[in-house]
Simulated scan of single mutants.
Amino acid sequence: MRSLDALRSLFRRPLALLVALVLLAGCQSTTLTADGLMQPSRPIAAAAFGEVERRGHSALVIDYQSGRTLFADQADELRYPASLTKLMTLYLVFEQLKSGRLSKDDQLLVSENAASKPPSKLGVEAGETIPVGLAIQALATKSANDVATIVAENLAGSEGAFAASMTAKARSLGMNRTRFANASGLPDPGQISTARDMAILARALMSRFPEYLPIFAVPSYEYRGKTYRATNKLLGKVAGVDGLKTGYINDAGSHLVATVKRGGRRLIVVVLGGKSGRERDEEVTALIERFAGPGF
């Protein structure tokens, strides 16, 4: 554990200086490669993608191993991703951990901006630090908005710069109808995606970082004497479900990207725009039973 003096010295400059030699600067789009955070490219206007349907419904089921589509309903229509955004935030963190530029014990400084984010949140105060390991769990389990901003600011210097890297990474993965404006999924008209793009992200995350998948199956964790329970209510309820992420904002409705393993095969199920968390969960469950049940 670093001493207090060492931490103060560390946070006189962005943690990103330790994560990569070249950081994001200004508002230019960026590319996040295996070598770290890099520069160039140009911003992508949200208007270039088309109109977003408020609370639009989408559903998609794919086979994880082959990527084959088993079911699709408006899977390529634009939606606001809400907290599904944090799958990409975690993807970029996992990349840095895998490369060795970041460790779970590294400390992240909490800014006033991050501490001010609305719930869902961990509730840390400006000037505090939290370890990367806790940040990962808070994002995956609690979907903490303050932690998403903490990660973005520490890794890239600003949330805008981090969001540009998120968009560039999305493009490199084939998520061609996705644009990120922040690291949390809080409301922003420029934050857009589709059910198919979210499935692409989930599949890439699972295949590249299998060592971190158990994080998404944790039903709860404790921090400072308080228990934080998973937002994914299918964990422990629907057989075979072992991740990934929920999301909700008023203009989007209730989202869920779920992964289920039965009979030696794995599916990724995406439902966007549920009228409620319960309705969304019921639809995901029905799709699981239809495509991953006996005889699958």
Rank of each mutant, 00 (worst) to 15 (best):
A16W: 10
L186N: 08
T149M: 05
A163F: 01
F291Y: 15
D106P: 13
I215K: 06
M206N: 14
K117C: 00
P187H: 07
F11I: 08
L90H: 03
E159K: 08
I150Q: 01
A204W: 00
P81W: 01
L108T: 03
I288V: 06
R266T: 11
G293P: 08
T246Q: 05
K142F: 02
S143D: 11
A156P: 14
A286G: 06
L108Y: 00
V93Y: 04
L21M: 13
D35E: 13
Y64E: 15
F209G: 12
P119L: 01
R171P: 05
E95F: 00
V147I: 07
K245I: 09
R203T: 12
K245G: 05
F94D: 14
L32E: 15
F162R: 06
M175N: 13
G26A: 11
K121N: 08
F49Q: 10
L109S: 06
G67K: 09
F71K: 14
I288A: 02
A34N: 15
A168D: 15
E211K: 14
K121Y: 02
L90T: 12
E222I: 12
K261T: 15
C27K: 14
L97V: 05
L186E: 14
V132N: 02
L87A: 01
D105S: 12
V93N: 08
C27Q: 11
V22M: 06
A286N: 12
V271I: 09
V132L: 02
A202H: 03
E153R: 04
A25I: 11
A170H: 03
V110N: 00
P118E: 11
G247V: 01
K275A: 09
N145T: 12
Q137P: 11
A170N: 08
L256K: 02
L37M: 11
R280I: 05
Y64C: 04
S58Y: 01
T259W: 00
A258P: 07
T227C: 01
F209Y: 13
L10F: 02
T31W: 11
S254R: 14
L90C: 07
N250W: 02
L60V: 13
S143W: 01
E279G: 09
P219E: 00
T85R: 05
G274T: 13
G36T: 04
L102A: 07
S120K: 01
S66H: 02
A25W: 11
V238L: 07
S9N: 12
A152E: 08
S143C: 04
R265F: 01
L24A: 15
R229M: 04
R278T: 15
I44H: 05
S116V: 00
K237W: 05
A230P: 13
G264M: 02
D73N: 15
G225N: 06
V132G: 06
A25N: 13
G274K: 06
G185R: 08
Q39M: 11
I249A: 01
P14R: 10
P210H: 11
I150T: 02
L244G: 11
A164D: 14
G264V: 03
T246C: 01
F180S: 15
A230T: 14
T69D: 10
P14S: 07
L70V: 07
G236N: 04
T129P: 00
A202K: 04
A161R: 10
R229A: 08
